[in-house]
């Protein structure tokens, strides 16, 4: 059934790609799909969404949510930029790597706070991470002095805009993290316990698993992938912005649900989330490609989310599922 759901998302992705290809051929006589530039742009957009969505997938499979990632990304971006700026324009590789370490640490702190709130204090994750969403936002703006922290570092720019074997480095980073998250979710005990936690907390507790520790790990993983998103943002744009992740939160949540996850937890896959992220990126890029004002992408993504939920529900009805 999981595979059926992925089949739906695959089909949908193929359909919208087909739609834009036909549109391009008939309206402009050009190809949409078979241009390196288009593929790269879509991949970079998808990888931006993915970095927030990957860790989020694990959290959602466990039956929780992490809204704070929007500003975990920004907090990490600003922290990295501040370290580089502090050292100055001569900052070499060592500084950039140190700055990235500090950025990740900033993200991990947010994850630890989330984990502590949800696991130890039993705060519902929606409320708890909404709280840290605000706190991380404030913290990022405060340390950035309310503005964007611009940096001058060739090393960082190479990281953000360079290529490995012709593939943009942000895409490589997202692919590597996606493979790791996929491995963790489908091939490790941690992954099984994450699915089981989403279905029945009692099942995991009685199996002798330390559920509280597990929850903390989940929120830290979510913070790390979102934090990497922030590091890449700072590297790409040579600036750390507190709101680097804010516009992506909706897309990240959407990608996870389009990919087959359910609000009640217990289902969802990394492959599904990857497809979900690509669906959104294709819509974003495709609508602009068609010459529509970019605001239409919000409407389109909103519609796709609703369709994804309807598919999820009808599937629940078909097999008498967990709803």
């Amino acid at each position: 059934m999981k595979s059926l759901l992925n089949a739906w998302s695959w089909l949908f992705l193929v359909l919208i790609l087909g739609f834009f290809e036909i549109y391009a051929q008939t309206q402009t006589g050009n190809t949409f799909l078979f241009r390196i530039y288009n593929i790269q742009s879509i991949s970079v957009a998808a990888s931006q969404i993915l970095l927030l969505a990957l860790g989020l997938t694990l959290v959602i499979v466990a039956g929780h949510i992490d809204l704070s990632i929007a500003f975990t990304t920004g907090f990490a971006a600003v922290a990295m930029a501040l370290v580089i700026r502090f050292v100055g324009p001569e900052a070499g590789w060592f500084t950039v790597i140190l700055a990235m370490g500090v950025g990740l640490l900033a993200a991990i702190i947010v994850g630890l706070v989330n984990g502590w709130l949800v696991a130890q204090l039993n705060v519902p994750s929606f409320i708890g991470t909404l709280g840290t969403y605000g706190i991380a936002r404030g913290a990022a703006l405060i340390v950035a002095g309310g503005a964007t922290v611009s940096i001058r570092s060739d090393e960082a720019r190479v990281l953000g805009n360079g290529h490995i074997l012709g593939i943009p480095i942000p895409v490589v980073a997202a692919v590597v993290l996606a493979i790791i998250c996929h491995y963790v979710l489908t091939h490790t005990r941690f992954g099984v316990h994450t699915y089981a936690l989403g279905a029945s907390r009692a099942s995991v507790e009685r199996a002798g698993v330390d559920v509280k520790r597990h929850l903390v790990y989940l929120f830290v993983i979510s913070a790390i992938t979102a934090g990497v998103g922030g590091l890449i943002y700072t590297s790409r744009f040579s600036a750390g912005a507190a709101n680097a992740g804010e516009p992506i939160l909706l897309y990240a949540v959407a990608a996870v649900f389009i990919g087959g996850a359910s609000l009640t937890g217990g289902q969802g896959t990394i492959i599904g989330t990857v497809i979900g992220a690509f669906i959104i990126a294709v819509i974003q890029f495709g609508l602009v490609f068609c010459g529509l004002p970019p605001y239409w992408q919000f409407v389109a993504v909103g519609l796709v989310i609703i369709v994804a939920v309807l598919v999820d529900q009808s599937k629940g009805r078909l097999v008498g599922g967990s709803t």
């Binding site: 099984v192 316990h193 699915y195 089981a196 989403g198 279905a199 029945s200 009692a202 099942s203 995991v204 507790e205 009685r206 199996a207 002798g208 698993v209 217990g266 289902q267 967990s322």
Partner: peptide
Amino acid sequence: DLALADNLDPGLNLYLGR
């Protein structure tokens, strides 16, 4: 309530935690 993880197969339920 059995404490089964409904979304997992019988094998994983049998071995849950081990």
